[in-house]
């Protein structure tokens, strides 16, 4: 679009708005090319052809950077944490600790040595990743393109709009659910819960049909809820970016609305993790 404000003389001119949006939804994918060499995919078809053994350098990289930012900030506060009057940043972090601890108090009954830092990490890390959504949609891709010297480079800045990232997180939680279920109930107890509930031993097939999909749905719903919300938000931002100067008030309005979604989704992911792990600790 000619009036597109982020467009510069060097940037590729998109033929249609759809192409602009489509390009912004592509990933910087590293994998094995059809000719046998390893490198970065230049088209989405090429990226798709790389199959499973390829990696999104953009979302993975930003996810790692944000994780390190989280650990870095919190570690620096933890090192000089005082039991006296807390300073500015410590106040904020203590607020988050209170949030996690009160969530655990109401929803988790058991030892919290591992679950508490787990919940904190999930909440803050996802919050940081979601907050990338508020960075103007073209800023990071344009910067990446300028650094790479390739104006057609795919670059996606919001990790939680990559379903791989959200599935990675929900699978991690799923692994923990399996681990704690088996640790607390034994293999027999865990399988028994799937097979003998809710209708007793007589209705074993029916129980399995009801319980196994419900169990497997946990990581899927966890991943897709987060991904869906953030992806939709991202697409709306991209569409708004096509509207010329009208995009400024609209971006602002959508960002304000999105400001609710960002912490809410991070909180939901954390809360559901706590609830699922609590179920893994409870005997029926």
């Amino acid at each position: 679009m000619a009036e597109h404000v982020t467009e510069s003389t060097e940037a590729p001119a998109y033929a249609t708005g759809g192409e602009y949006v489509q390009h912004h939804l592509g990933f910087l994918t590293y994998g094995k090319r059809p000719d046998g060499t390893w490198g970065i995919a230049h088209t989405e078809q090429e990226a798709a052809d790389m199959g499973f053994w390829s990696i999104h350098l953009d979302t993975m990289g930003i996810s790692l950077v944000l994780g390190l930012v989280f650990i870095g900030i919190f570690r620096s506060v933890a090192k000089k944490a005082t039991s006296g009057v807390p300073g500015g940043l410590q106040n904020v972090i203590e607020l988050l600790f209170d949030l996690v601890q009160s969530s655990l108090k109401t929803s988790f009954h058991g030892k919290t040595d591992y679950v508490a830092p787990l919940a904190l990490t999930i909440f803050v890390w996802i919050l940081f990743m979601n907050l990338m959504d508020l960075v103007p949609v073209d800023l990071i891709p344009l910067a990446a393109q300028a650094i790479a010297g390739d104006h057609h480079l795919y670059f996606k800045a919001v990790p939680t709009t990559d379903v791989n990232i959200t599935i990675g997180m929900s699978l991690s939680v799923f692994i923990l659910i399996l681990y704690y279920s088996i640790k607390n109930k034994g293999v027999g107890g865990f399988l028994g819960e799937l097979a003998f509930h809710p209708f007793g031993k007589a209705a074993l097939p029916l129980n399995l049909v009801m319980e196994v999909p419900a169990f497997l749905a946990k990581p899927v719903s966890l991943a897709l809820r987060l991904f869906g919300n953030l992806f939709a938000g991202e697409v709306i931002f991209l569409v708004i970016a096509l509207l010329g100067y009208w995009q400024f008030p609209l971006h602002f309005a959508w960002a304000v609305f999105h400001l609710l979604v960002i912490p809410l989704q991070a909180y939901l992911f954390m809360m559901l993790t706590i609830v699922y792990l609590n179920q893994a600790h409870q005997h029926h």
């Binding site: 993975m60 904190l120 990490t121 599935i167 692994i175």
Partner: peptide
């Protein structure tokens, strides 16, 4: 929407950061 090894990378990153948080921050 390609599913790829980013999932595995994220799983490793996840447990790494949770471990950091549990040891260094909490």
């Amino acid at each position: 929407m390609n599913l790829n090894a980013t999932i595995i990378g994220q799983i490793f990153a996840f447990f790494l950061f949770v471990w950091f948080c549990q040891k260094l921050v909490w």
